[in-house]
Design a protein around this nucleic acid. Sequence first.
DNA 1: GGGGCCATGTAATCGGTTACATGATTGA
DNA 2: TCAATCATGTAACCGATTACATGGCCCC
Lengths: 170, 170
Amino acid sequence: MSLRHALLGLLSERPASGYDLLKRFETSLANVWPATQSQMYTELSKLSADGLITVSAEGPRGRKEYTLTDEGLTELRHWLTETRPQRNTRSDLLLRVFFLDVLPPEHARGYLAWLADMSQREYEDLRRLEESIDWGDDPLSVNGRIALEYGLRLNAMRREWAEWAADRIG
Amino acid sequence: MSLRHALLGLLSERPASGYDLLKRFETSLANVWPATQSQMYTELSKLSADGLITVSAEGPRGRKEYTLTDEGLTELRHWLTETRPQRNTRSDLLLRVFFLDVLPPEHARGYLAWLADMSQREYEDLRRLEESIDWGDDPLSVNGRIALEYGLRLNAMRREWAEWAADRIG
DNA sequence: GGGGCCATGTAATCGGTTACATGATTGA
DNA sequence: TCAATCATGTAACCGATTACATGGCCCC
């Protein structure tokens, strides 16, 4: 149920259309909360029906600009402060580790090596992203930078772990 | 679609009933792939219908013991080697970070402090779990130990990151 | 006898994914 | 003019969650 809150959060910065939000997801939130186009338009309709956002303007091509209502902001704050995030650790990557012994050892090590490489590549992608962004003092910059740092540390950790694990299997 | 493979994986070690698998999930795979009772029984029926497992014995109280078939083992190996895990990074925890600026700074820092504490507690829980288990040389021990190490490193990383982030906001 | 555990199943609902469908506007 | 982009929506399906429902067996 968090796509709701992701949308409310983005709208708390400034009004936007579904299309705008779609673009902004791709470039910022996609890493922490992927969402499809279809899901977003559906959710926006629901949010509007629930009074958490309103259509504040209409533009060409049927464009609808949504604005956060007071109720929406209250709901966003409520989500942030009153509800406990439950860490959804469901990890395809780690699940496989449990069953690596049904493969020949060299295949198992191959999987871990691939994981290490993937983490390294992702790390480098994030570094490049970090350098390409003009970080300001605005809230999104501060928070976005913090989230990105998490990604960097996660991938560094994962690479080291995968290398350590490959040694252990050998 | 990975619950299938989690079940195939567990059955690759030894035959078991739905109830057995349920218990083993709770104590081992729950951290990487939570599943409900209802989901597991449904999936077992499907796996059986698809010929990847068979009912190898029936016991008291309607107990059905499932055994992996050759086809099932093939499917498990196929999943491990031929399909690429897509890291499903959807993270409730991190999503909130993006919107911390709608809260007063002390609340935002409070959230990060809580995150650091939670990670620390989880770290300690895993350490205790590690010490409580009699690690052998069997495949499950080796792999389980590797997965557990991932949890330890993740939580250590997360704690440090949350502390670093709290400083940044202040 | 009865409480606790063993053991399995179904139905309703929800969030998310994939695919399909449509059309307006802009700019080269 | 025509391709690219802007822009929104619906339908089918799937995996996961919650709740409900049932009953047998074992041991105290």
